[in-house]
Simulated scan of single mutants.
Amino acid sequence: MLIAHWTFDVEDIDGSRVNDTTGGGLPAALDGGAEIVPGRDGEALSLDGGTRAVVPAAPQLVLSQVFGFAVAFFVNVTAEPIGEWRGLFYKPVAEHDARGIGMWLYPDAQRLRVQLFTVKGPEYMDSRAVLSPGEWTHVAFVVDTDGMFLYINGKLDVAVPLEHAVVTPAGPIYLGGEPGKPGLTGLMDDVRVYASALDGEAVRALAD
C-alpha cells in the first residue's frame, strides 16, 4: 500500500513544500538550499551535500516489519566521493532517537550501505552494484519478516535475513543527509514509501 509519494514536479510544489500526491497530507519541506530543478521526467529534488528535504513524523509513516514496508526512489549522483559517508535517506526510530533506517553512499565509492535497527542493534547490507555518476538509478529497499532486500534498477542486488525483530521506525524522514551529517550531492525523484513489502515484479514496474 502506497502511503506517501513525492514527485517533485512543479504542480506539486507549494512554496518551499512538496505535496504528497497520495493526499495523505505529508508534505516534504525543502531545507536551506534544496531546490526543484529539471529532472528525469519533469522536475527533481536537487541537493548540494548539505541540504535536505524533511517530512515530519506522522502516524501514517510508522512502518511495521510485521506488515512489511518499502522505500523506493530514483537518484542521480553528480559528485565524486568526498571521503565521508553521504546520506540519501534517514528515518530515526523517533525524533532525536536512534537511526531506524539509514541509506548512504560509501566514503570512497558510489556504492550503497543500508542500515536497519533491530532489537539487538543495527543490521547492515552493502550493494554489489556501483551507481554510475550522472545517470539515473532506481533504488528500492524492502523489509518483511524474512529479511531486508535491496534492488538496483529493478533487480535484486543483495538480501540479508533478519534474525531479530526490527524496531519500528516512526520518526521523520530526511531525504539527503541526516542532521549535521553530509548528504547527497545530486538529484532525487519519485520518492515513494509503502506500508507493505513490494515483490520483485512490483519493483521492476517502478524501475521501468
Rank of each mutant, 00 (worst) to 15 (best):
S64D: 08
D97C: 03
W104F: 04
L88P: 06
M103E: 02
A70V: 05
F73R: 04
A72K: 02
F74C: 01
G50N: 07
I82Q: 13
G87D: 07
G49H: 06
G87E: 11
A53P: 14
A44Y: 14
L88W: 03
Y90H: 12
S64L: 12
E43L: 08
T51C: 11
G100L: 03
P56D: 13
R99K: 10
Y90I: 00
W85D: 12
A94H: 05
W104P: 01
S64M: 09
A72Q: 13
T78F: 00
P81Q: 04
D48H: 07
E95C: 00
I82R: 14
L47N: 12
Q65M: 12
L88F: 02
H96A: 13
G49R: 08
Y106M: 10
M103T: 03
Q60D: 12
S64Q: 09
P59D: 11
G102P: 01
R86P: 03
H96P: 00
S64E: 10
G102A: 11
G102N: 00
Y106D: 14
W104R: 04
E84K: 13
P59V: 12
R52F: 12
L105I: 09
P59R: 10
G102Y: 01
S64H: 14
Y106H: 13
V75F: 06
V62G: 10
R52H: 15
L47C: 11
G83C: 07
Y106F: 13
A79F: 01
V71N: 00
R52S: 15
L63V: 11
V75E: 04
L88Y: 01
A94D: 03
L105F: 00
M103Q: 00
R52W: 15
Q60V: 14
L61N: 07
E43M: 14
R86I: 08
W104A: 00
G42Q: 12
G68H: 10
H96W: 12
A70D: 04
S46F: 15
V62S: 11
L47F: 09
T78E: 06
R86L: 14
P59W: 05
G42S: 09
V62E: 15
D97L: 01
G50I: 06
V55M: 05
I82H: 09
L61R: 03
E80V: 12
A98V: 01
W104T: 08
G100E: 02
L105K: 05
V93S: 00
E84R: 15
G83Q: 08
G68V: 08
V54A: 14
F67G: 04
R52A: 15
W85K: 13
A70T: 11
F73I: 07
W85G: 08
G68M: 09
T78I: 07
W104D: 07
N76T: 00
P56R: 13
F74A: 08
R99I: 00
A58V: 05
